[in-house]
Structure formats: C-alpha cells, structure tokens
C-alpha cells in the first residue's frame, strides 16, 4: 500500500493570482524516504500543509496512510509527525520541557517510544536543561525531530529540516532519517539543496508549483539527455565568457570550482569547442567529461 498518495492537486492563493500547486501527483511507498527538491516558491510548503491536513486543496484528492486528508483529518493527525519549515519550538522552554510537552500532546511519554529517539536524544541529553532558544541551529532541528517522533508516527513530514543548518549537523540529520526509515517510518522531506537529493530513495523535482520529474536520484541523472563536461582554468570568469561565446555552446553554468558545459551536438562539437577556447582564452585550461549532478538535471528540466 502507498503511504502517501497525491492525486492531481491544485491550490492557489490570493484569488487565483498565485498558483502554488498545479496538478501535483505522486505516490510514496511505505518506509520510503521521499524528497521534494526545489527552490523557495516551488510549492513544497503548501503541499506539506495539504498532506498534513492543514490546508484544503482546491481540487484533486490525497490520502495519508490510506486515510483521506479531508474526511479523515482527525485520524491522520493522530498518526503523522509534522515538522513545519519555520518550526522553532518553544524558545523559553528547556529541551526536556519541550519534549515532555509534546509527549503530553500526543498522549505518550518520552520513555514509551524511547527506542526511536534514543540516538538523537543522547546527543541532546547534555543540554537537557538548556532553553531551546539557546541551542544551535542543528541542535534545534534535532530536538524538533525528536518532538515530531515522540508518538511513533507512521508517516513523517519534514519541511526543509536542514535549511540554515551547518553541514556537519545536516549530515547527522540525514543519518537519522536513514535510521528512521529502517524502522519502517515513511518520510516525506523537502529541501532546497540539490545535493541532498542523492540521500533520498526517490525524489520529486519541483519548481513553481509543478513537478518536473519523479524518479530515484540515479534514475534522474541517467535520464540527463546530454553529454556534460567540466571545464577549469585559472581565470574562471574569462573562461566562462569564452565558453559562452562559442556558437555551439548549449549551456555553460558556473559550478564553483569548475563550469559545467553542454554543447548543442554533444561530442561532435567537442573538438571545435576546445579549439575555440584555445584560440580565445589563450591560456591552458582543463576539460573532462563528467556525470551530471541533480542540479544539472534540475536546470535542464526547468
């Protein structure tokens, strides 16, 4: 059975002026780690709110754990864990008080589901009496995850849990998600960071309220239609200018240390490109064929 089903969801705001979701359909299997990848304004939060029974879609239907989000919203609320994007806990309550409070909210205790949050809680334990407002970004998100897990939900909704969190904590956070998945929890997680896509079982690439593609991260990369090269030289800006000036350049985007290049006729244009750069850039440069990243795919699709 699919844990989450979204069927042709539409939603707009301000009397239709802002189209937040346009025809969103996808399914998430039981115990799957499913990522919604997309920039701000893609509609991720709206989608979460509809699935978490906080908003009603204008049309289309959806279900969570086999329950209809509109009709059975009360039943759904008992079995999902939800961590909204701007969720920041009660700043003036301590770590323990926050946890205890949310345990009460779901009619349980910390002890009852300790096995689920054990790993995370042990990291938080030294700061048990610290106010949530005084925790670092990473710690806050871990605590928030704990709070969302306290009632052993069958489905977990995490809206941008790693935004604004430093890389170390981000990595740890994803490790926790992997563990929770192994415990049989279905996880729907959103992120604006393309590099986090590879950590999901399957992803939906979203932009401006639409889904661009749904597949496994590997599947998405394999579908990338073109050959792609990375180019590098000492003056990256000049190289970018030259590469873009080449008539048969399809795209050339900065990727930090190197630029990613695609050519109109792929390998056919390769030699001409190298020659063109040699002529115009004059200094040595490196070029090598690479596999596309999720970000390349996203740009190709959008």
């Amino acid at each position: 059975m699919n844990a989450i089903i979204a069927n042709h969801l539409f939603k707009s705001f301000e009397k239709g002026k802002i189209k937040a979701l346009e025809d969103i359909s996808f399914e998430v299997k039981q115990a799957e780690l499913f990522g919604l990848i997309g920039p701000d304004g893609a509609g991720k939060t709206t989608l979460f709110r509809i699935l978490a029974t906080l908003l009603l879609a204008e049309s289309g239907d959806s279900s969570v754990d086999g329950l209809d989000v509109k009709k059975d919203y009360k039943a759904i609320r008992k079995r999902v864990g939800y961590m909204p994007g701007k969720f920041s806990l009660y700043q003036d309550l301590s770590v323990e008080e926050n946890l205890n409070f949310f345990a009460h909210v779901f009619g349980t205790t910390i002890e009852q589901n300790y096995h689920l949050i054990k790993d995370i809680y042990q990291q938080l334990e030294p700061f048990k009496t610290r106010k949530a407002g005084k925790l670092s970004g990473g710690m806050k998100q871990k605590l928030a995850l704990c709070c969302a897990l306290i009632h052993e939900p069958s489905v977990l909704f995490l809206d941008e849990p790693t935004t604004g969190v430093d890389p170390v904590s981000r990595k740890e956070f994803w490790e926790m998600l992997k563990y929770l998945k192994s415990e049989g929890i279905t996880i729907l997680v959103s992120t604006p960071y393309m590099d986090e896509a590879s950590l999901c079982d399957r992803v939906a690439l979203m932009q401006k309220g639409k889904i661009l593609d749904i597949d496994t991260p590997v599947g998405i990369i394999e579908k990338y239609p073109k050959k792609i090269w990375s180019i590098h030289a000492s003056n990256m800006y000049a190289l970018l200018q030259v590469a873009r000036a080449f008539p048969n350049t399809h795209t050339c985007f900065g990727f930090g240390e190197s630029h990613h290049l695609t050519l109109n006729h792929d390998a056919e244009d390769y030699d001409a490109f190298c020659q063109y750069v040699q002529e115009h850039y004059k200094e040595p440069f490196q070029i090598q064929e690479i596999t596309a990243t999720i970000e390349d795919c996203f740009m190709a699709l959008s």
Partner: peptide
C-alpha cells in the same frame, strides 16, 4: 508565528 500552532493543529489535541 513560531510555527508551533501548526504542529499542535496536526496533533490529536
């Protein structure tokens, strides 16, 4: 504002 209301809404409370 804190977003806690959202969490409380999505709970059996």
């Amino acid at each position: 504002e804190l977003g806690t209301m959202e969490v409380l809404l999505v709970s059996p409370v």
